[in-house]
Design a protein around this nucleic acid. Sequence first.
DNA 1: GCCAACGTTGGC
DNA 2: GCCAACGTTGGC
Length: 156
Amino acid sequence: MHQNYWLFKAEPELYGIDHLAAAPAQTGRWDGIRNYQARNLLRDQVQTGDLVLIYHSSCRQLGLYGVAQVVRSAYPDPSQFDPASRYLDPKASPEAPRWVSVDIQLLRQFDPFIALAELKAEPELSQLCLFRQPRLSIQPVSAEEWAHIQHLRGLE
DNA sequence: GCCAACGTTGGC
DNA sequence: GCCAACGTTGGC
């Protein structure tokens, strides 16, 4: 299948690029998505091999921190069944899961990170989902937007 | 199925 | 901490 591009939002105090970088094989589970629009994208469209921009929200330095690759496509998010998790969903069961996770592997970190203000200053990025639908936690990124963002750090 | 009340997100 | 935008809930 054709490779797609995404932007995943993270609150770095909960789980962010540093957690991913420290994980075995720099691979971690993207869990805790509890919004139906984001869930549907994750479940139906995010495929193994897709590339992902990691965005940090709700923190002092908002922006893009790196690139990851999807290494496992959607499967039931274990945290929905976990009474100890803040993401427990009492209406979900293993027989009828509601939420999904994917696994991603960190490929590289931007140096320096790409601040939100830097993204906003690029006319070519004015249509980014990040600006049009800022609350969506799993967002599509076009091939053109992806290339432009890579070029901001001299990357292909 | 409408819609008011309420909760959450997230930049500032 | 504020507050606008937006998502969810639940009575009718």
